[in-house]
Design a protein around this nucleic acid. Structure first.
Lengths: 328, 328
DNA sequence: TGATTTTTTGCATACGTATTCAAATTAAGA
DNA sequence: TCTTAATTTGAATACGTATGCAAAAAATCA
């Protein structure tokens, strides 16, 4: 009893050589229509499917994309995961999912990715020490930081245009209020958090509006606790800009619990436009990150680097859009 | 220039045979401590890592688990994904993530899993036609339905004890109210939805309490719209039991929008105990699904079937627990 | 120490595919 | 129809690892 049927078996049944079978199943190889039909018929009869491991071994390449993710609690990321998976499927790639608990990717995760000789790597919501990222470069494996940017510009990244977005948000708020505002950052070592503050601060300064910064962690509870701190500091700010939606929701709930009226007493703005932002319980004004465009950018870059590695890196910025709801 | 360093290179440097190198990196093989050290030193110097594809090819097995998922919008599932990934990592397995849009898994997704000769498969929040599931059995690939159960008992499944849970919920509600209640189902073809109704109906009937059933789809919007239908039907039910939390949240928001007081006018109960259920904006009474236990059960079953395939299938039921909050 | 058993090592081979190169077939040209 | 060019096919090989088997080494026993 032979469990797996291989190309040779198909070849025998079809009356051709193993090479021909291989050529039928390998895109871009030349075969006569006649033999193709014979092979396909035989393959179907035997239930043949090419062994992906033998393929990867001989071609020294794989059809697997490594996707590293941390914040599955933030609904933004499952959404991203879904889009990546469906998009790559269209192009014949599968997704190896790697979850990291730490901010920084563990070296054993890297090992996994290298052992599987992944065709490309996407890192979302996590950072990575420089020398680890260089390990991928050394192996000529294209790498994209998604929604994160490294200070060093030698790595490719795809983000929303945070600077522009936060400027627009500040301008919008400045047109409504002039009292002291609050910015709630996420984890301070993230580019997203820093950039969103930068644009916000820039415009407010220009308009002569003060703001106070609170540091949090991109989580609902973080937002909730920060809002409590804000209230216990005594003065209710005219507006709060949270670095992402999920924190903004926490902020709203904490304010409401204390009877603070939104938007009458304080305006709240988030970032991402996750599903929940549109829920009637929140109706959060926010900035929409164009996930689809960002994913497309990432996929296209990876595919082009996979087909021909250049190592050329760029910080891609995609424009998002303002979504006005009931919290402002 | 040779890009990849292989076992032979290491062997040469260490002054041993390729077989010995292989044995050092293969768990359960015998090597002297002395040669092990020599090999490890050489491997480190050269930056050697075993080629996973060659391994899989020769052993005709892989260290990959296929995880098929549909509802990434429901926060319950990202949580599940995270737990599976971390748990399998501990055991040396990686997760190939497959997202399916349809209720039923596509055959090309199956092909992907079979091409990669996955060591095991987990299917969450999606069903699968019988003959497809049989394809896995034919290849002796262990398969688990997670949080779903097929009518046919020839497949392994891991669920929360839905019957018991929904009975307890009904008893709890019956002790508080006697007016007509509502059950909101998810997609009707899911075992979870059916079982949760069954236990609920059983107890209510016994207590002489009427209930009306609305069919929805496990989504927030579905819950929201259903609540609107309930209200437009005229009479406010004494209690609503939604087949999952995310629908319950939609129900709450719809009720509130219409000024219906929870829990004074209507009580609401969900199922899952997702993070959001505990948010101050909701404080939803619900039933907690013990994700960790369910994941452990699944992982243990798969690992044991991987090490020795028996094909023996069972419908495992894990006990959850009632979480009382402010909506009842 | 010498004989015998146990353990470790190396050699050779197999896994299933892609691909080079020469042979064979087909197509084109006259 | 015959020659020549172009295309398709098949045979052989390589990818990097695990493993059966025999040889070598080490350990055990007397």
């Amino acid at each position: 009893m032979k469990p797996t049927v291989n190309a040779k078996d198909v070849a025998k049944l079809a009356g051709v050589s193993q090479s021909s079978v291989s050529r039928v199943f390998f895109d871009g190889a030349k075969v006569t229509e006649k033999t193709r039909q014979k092979v396909l018929a035989a393959a179907k009869e035997l239930g043949y499917r090419p062994n992906e491991y033998a393929r990867s071994l001989i071609t020294n390449s794989s059809k697997i994309i490594g996707l590293v993710m941390k914040g599955v609690q933030n609904p933004f990321y499952p959404q991203v995961l879904k889009q990546f998976t469906t998009s790559f499927k269209k192009h014949g790639y599968s997704v190896l999912f790697v979850h990291t608990n730490n901010d920084e990717i563990q070296s054993d995760d890297i090992d996994t990715l290298l052992n599987y000789n992944v065709a490309g790597v996407i890192i979302t919501d996590a950072s990575m020490s420089m020398n680890v990222a260089e390990a991928f470069q050394a192996n000529r494996i294209p790498l994209v930081f998604f929604n994160r940017k490294l200070t060093s510009s030698q790595f490719h990244s795809v983000c929303c245009n945070n600077l522009n977005a936060s400027r627009k948000i500040a301008e919008y708020l400045a047109a409504l209020e002039t009292g002291e505002m609050v910015y709630i950052s996420g984890n301070e070592d993230t580019s997203t958090s820093r950039e969103r503050e930068q644009g916000f601060a820039e415009v407010l300064k220009q308009r002569g509006i003060a703001y106070k910064k609170y540091t949090s962690d991109f989580s609902y509870n973080g937002g909730y606790e920060t809002a409590q701190k804000i209230l216990s500091a005594g003065k209710i700010p005219s507006a709060v800009f949270a670095a992402n939606d999920i924190m903004a929701l926490g902020v709203m709930d904490a304010f409401r619990k204390q009877g603070v009226q939104i938007p009458e007493q304080v305006k709240v703005i988030g970032f991402d436009n996750i599903d929940m932002a549109s829920w009637p319980a929140y109706e959060l004004t926010t900035w929409e990150q164009p996930i689809e465009k960002m994913v497309d950018e990432t996929v296209n870059y990876l595919l082009s680097e996979i087909s021909e590695y250049t190592g050329r890196a760029r910080a891609v910025e995609v424009e998002g859009s303002f979504v006005e709801r009931k919290t402002t």
